[in-house]
């Protein structure tokens, strides 16, 4: 039998979903504490556009 690929075990539901967050705005920044470096990705809220008013 062919071996099934190992499944990456992830904490299901740990991500959840943000609402009204612009996922294309992610900026990565490294933080080092006690010689351990991790990468944080910060996102910005979606900017609500106000309806443009006609100027006559």
């Amino acid at each position: 039998k062919p071996r099934e690929p190992e499944k990456r075990i992830t904490a299901k539901g740990a991500r959840g979903r943000w609402k009204n967050i612009d996922r294309t705005s992610g900026r990565k920044r490294e933080v080092t504490v006690n010689n351990v470096t991790v990468v944080f990705t910060e996102f910005q809220p979606k900017v609500k556009r106000s309806p443009s008013s006609d100027v006559s």
């Binding site: 943000w18 933080v31 504490v33 991790v38 990468v39 910060e42 996102f43």
Partner: peptide
């Protein structure tokens, strides 16, 4: 102010505190 961040599971609370101080 609010911040929306994605971080790995190995990141510690101290990492978060440090990140906030830097930002």
């Amino acid at each position: 102010d609010l911040k929306y961040i994605k971080a790995p599971g190995v990141a510690s609370v101290e990492h978060i505190s440090t990140y906030l101080a830097l930002r």
